[in-house]
Structure formats: structure tokens, C-alpha cells
């Protein structure tokens, strides 16, 4: 009797420990990465990193300022096009999407979200770089938009679907037109969730490297136009990392640290909005 109770409690505790260990194993890499980056990137983490252009090989100092600006430019462009398109498609799917067309859209969006990012890079290359005969910010932004949009569409749709029917009915019963109900009541109700989705998608595209290889190409100097090759942090990290020089390796670590810092800030902001604005 007592032995059985003991065994039952032991089994109980053992499973709990097992699950906790698994959970720990999941988050462990994140801390290892952060720790490693801080350890190795700290040496180059100086103010000039974010203010200076890259210096040639052998010349000490220099930064990734053009990369930061480039990344923000590309992401900004991708979002400028992607937010309206993505949010409005999401609204369509959630509020009106009942027929075959909507299911087709939904399916395609899921497919698009599953396309490997390098393929989207190649697509941007074929669509922009070949006809224009030039790598450009436009090409990079459109490749990133294709990663950005599906996420935004689906999060917008999901967030709108969490808005209770009673809210829509309440608005309609006041004699508010359907389109106004959708835009000013339903979307407003879900706005925190939609914004969170946008920020998480943004965090995702900021770190994308593969699509940029075929579209942005990279640039050692300040960008001169949106139709020109443009620098980006992930590209710079990539280039520094595969170089044979030790000081460039250090810069790669520092660049990665900046990148992950940006992603963390955006993700934290997203979580904050999701929690506080509920």
C-alpha cells in the first residue's frame, strides 16, 4: 500500500523532471548563442561599429553603418508594400473569405510561407535583377515581402477570427455599415494582435540572408539609390565570416550581435504589445 503510493509519486516526479529537462534543452541553444555572441562580438562592439563604413582588409576599425541602414531600408520597403497587402488580404480571408477563391488563397498563402527563402531570392533575381541588369534594394525588398506577407496574412486572419461575433453584431445592430464595422470596429479590436504579427514577421525578415544574396548583393559604401546594390547586416556578417581574416571574423561576431539585438528588441516589443494592449 505504502510502496505503491511511493512508486506512484516517484513516477510522477520523474515525468515532471523529464519534461522540464526537455524544455530546458529547447531554450539552451538560445542562451548558448547569446553567450557566444557576447563573448566573441564584444571585442568589436564599439561605437564606430554603428557609425562607420567598413574599412578595407588590414585597416583596423570600421563598422557596418551602411548595413544597418540598408537592412532598415529593405525591411522598410518590404513592409511598406507588405503591410497593406498582407493586412487587407487577411481581412478578406477573415471577414469575407467563405468561397472557393478564399480557400485557394488560404492554401496558396500557406504554400508561399513554406517556400524556402533561397528560392524567393532566386525569384527576385529573375523578376528584377535580370530585366534591370542590376542588383537593387527593390529586388531585395520584394523577395523579403514574399516572406513577410504570408505571415502577416495568416496572423491578421487568425487575430480577426478571435474577435467574437458579438462585437460585429453589436456594431451592425447600431446601424454601422459592414465595411465600417470591419475597418473601425473589428480590425481595431484585433489591432494589437495584428501589430504583434507584423513585428514578428519583421523580426523574421531582418535576419534573412539567402534571398539577399541574389538581390541586394551588398555594398561596401553608403547606398546611392533604391535601384542600386545595397548593403545589409546579414550579408556583411556572411561576408566577414567566410573571409580568411581574423579581425573580419571579429566583426562578423559583432555584426551578428547587432542583428540579434535588433530581433530581440522587436520580438520583445511584439510580446509587450500583445500583452499590454489586450
Amino acid at each position: 500500500m505504502h510502496a505503491i503510493a511511493f512508486r506512484r509519486r516517484a513516477a510522477d516526479r520523474a515525468t515532471k523532471v523529464l519534461f522540464a529537462l526537455c524544455a530546458f534543452a529547447v531554450v539552451l541553444p538560445l542562451f548558448l548563442i547569446l553567450f557566444d555572441l557576447l563573448w566573441k562580438g564584444a571585442r568589436e562592439l564599439k561605437w564606430t561599429l554603428v557609425t562607420d563604413l567598413p574599412h578595407p582588409v588590414g585597416e583596423p576599425g570600421g563598422g557596418i553603418a551602411n548595413g544597418i541602414l540598408g537592412t532598415l531600408t529593405i525591411a522598410g520597403l518590404a513592409m511598406a508594400g507588405g503591410i497593406p497587402l498582407g493586412v487587407m488580404s487577411g481581412i478578406y480571408l477573415a471577414e469575407y473569405g467563405r468561397g472557393k477563391f478564399a480557400s485557394a488563397v488560404r492554401f496558396s498563402v500557406d504554400m508561399l510561407a513554406g517556400v524556402p527563402s533561397i528560392i524567393l531570392g532566386i525569384f527576385g533575381y529573375v523578376l528584377w535583377v535580370l530585366p534591370m541588369k542590376r542588383f537593387s534594394a527593390w529586388a531585395a525588398a520584394s523577395a523579403l515581402a514574399m516572406i513577410f506577407i504570408p505571415t502577416v496574412v495568416r496572423t491578421t486572419e487568425e487575430m480577426l477570427k478571435t474577435v467574437p461575433v458579438s462585437v460585429r453584431e453589436g456594431a451592425l445592430a447600431l446601424g454601422i455599415e459592414r465595411w465600417k464595422t470591419t475597418l473601425f470596429i473589428t480590425v481595431r479590436t484585433a489591432s494589437a494582435g495584428i501589430l504583434t504579427g507584423i513585428l514578428l514577421a519583421m523580426a523574421r525578415i531582418i535576419g534573412e540572408t539567402a534571398p539577399l544574396l541574389f538581390t541586394a548583393l551588398g555594398n561596401q559604401f553608403w547606398q546611392t539609390g533604391l535601384d542600386q546594390p545595397i548593403a545589409a547586416i546579414p550579408l556583411q556578417v556572411f561576408n566577414y565570416a567566410i573571409s580568411p581574416y581574423d579581425d573580419w571574423h571579429d566583426k562578423a561576431w559583432a555584426g551578428a550581435l547587432v542583428l540579434i539585438g535588433m530581433v530581440l528588441v522587436i520580438s520583445t516589443a511584439a510580446r509587450y504589445i500583445a500583452r499590454v494592449k489586450k
Binding site: 458579438s166 453584431e169 453589436g170 447600431l174 446601424g175 455599415e177 470596429i185 481595431r188 479590436t189
Partner: peptide
């Protein structure tokens, strides 16, 4: 529906709107 209003079983004030906005919302959009 502006002439024939409705109140529902579950109270359904609009989330993310103040008391004032909730009351004003019908007028604001009509």
C-alpha cells in the same frame, strides 16, 4: 437598424474602446 436597435444576451461593449467611445460609436459612424 438605426431605428430598431438591439441589445444582446452577452454584454458586448467594444473592446479597446472607452465608455465614452462605446456610447459615441454609433453616432460617429453614421
Amino acid at each position: 437598424r438605426r431605428k430598431v436597435g438591439m441589445v444582446f444576451q452577452q454584454p458586448n461593449p467594444f473592446p479597446r474602446m472607452s465608455v465614452f467611445e462605446n456610447v459615441a460609436v454609433g453616432l460617429k459612424f453614421n
